[in-house]
């Protein structure tokens, strides 16, 4: 940080003598000050959770959702400047729609994350714009079943030339994080915002390797996500917060391949367990047993 105050941090897209873009680093600071957002890639789906800081008792509970749905099967949550997050969600929806109009199919999560990364990176290239003050989490499920092309009529041949390969499987759960620099990386689980350090420490304790038998399921993921958001909130205890959580599963799972808010009954149960785990063993690692 030796170059701070020497004039290299006044404009976006200006390189400091050691090759850094300070405006992007300042944007990252803004992103780190938002409510904690986490994403967990489970065996059969993805969970997104957000610690939504409540500034006033006058705010209506459950209103003003901050986790957005992109297309049908992808969710996006950001931490940092709220309007920047909304702008990115809107951009993501446009990207998904334009993909659909070209390829007549939903956009794969990886392609959407890549396009969003490119868009965010474009805002580090000119001094006429500022970088985004958010870190964006993109989580979704690519259909592994054979899905119809949009507007398809008829089924086409079932075998032979133009037929389908039997038993071919693609798709699955995906989770990406896009930083203000445009850096876009895939994760098993990740966290951003104020409580990210505590959250990441908790996430590292989970079994997230899908090849292992004890890889956590979507239902466990929901409970863990609720608990981790509560753990991450410990540093910020004086402020009220509301837990917002969404999930996406396979077509065979509870959300039928769509990104949706976690149903209220499941969310309430997860939160009850989370509070119990926090009160129960503060000294232990907070690992809960049902």
């Amino acid at each position: 940080m030796t170059s701070i105050g020497t004039g290299y941090d006044l404009q976006n897209s200006v390189f400091s003598p050691d090759g850094r873009n300070f405006q992007v680093e300042y944007a990252a600071k803004a992103a780190e000050n938002g409510g904690t957002a986490i994403g967990i890639r489970c065996k059969n789906g993805v969970v997104l959770a957000l610690e939504k800081l409540v500034t006033s008792k006058l705010a209506k509970k459950g209103a003003n959702k901050q986790i957005s749905t992109v297309d049908r099967n992808i969710g996006a949550v950001s931490s940092g400047l709220l309007p920047d997050g909304r702008h990115l969600a809107s951009r993501a929806r446009d990207e998904a729609a334009s993909w659909r109009s070209t390829y007549k199919a939903p956009i794969p999560v990886a392609s959407l994350a890549d396009r969003m990364g490119t868009y965010v990176q474009a805002h580090t290239r000119f001094n006429s714009v500022r970088p985004f003050g958010v870190t964006l989490l993109v989580g979704g499920w690519d259909a592994e079943t054979d899905i119809d092309v949009d507007g398809a009529v008829g089924a086409g041949p079932s075998v032979g030339a133009g037929g389908r390969a039997k038993g071919a499987k693609h798709g699955g759960p995906y989770l990406y994080m896009i930083e203000p620099s445009g850096n876009c990386t895939g994760w098993l689980a990740t966290a951003t915002g104020k409580g990210r350090q505590a959250a990441k420490a908790e996430l590292e304790k989970l079994q997230l390797d899908a090849n292992e038998d004890d890889c956590i399921t979507l239902e466990e993921g929901v409970k863990e996500a609720a608990r981790i958001i509560h753990v991450a909130h410990e540093d910020n205890k004086d402020k009220e917060f509301e837990l917002e959580m969404t999930w996406v599963s396979a077509v065979s799972g509870p959300t039928k391949g769509r990104h949706e808010p976690v149903p209220k009954t499941i969310l309430d149960e997860a939160e009850r367990l989370a509070k119990k785990a926090l009160d129960g063993d503060d000294d232990e690692d907070g690992k809960m047993d049902e």
Binding site: S68, R72, R93, A96, A97
Partner: peptide
Amino acid sequence: QELNVEENYYGN
């Protein structure tokens, strides 16, 4: 379909 996707961003 485009309309359906747009109309159902918040839940299906």
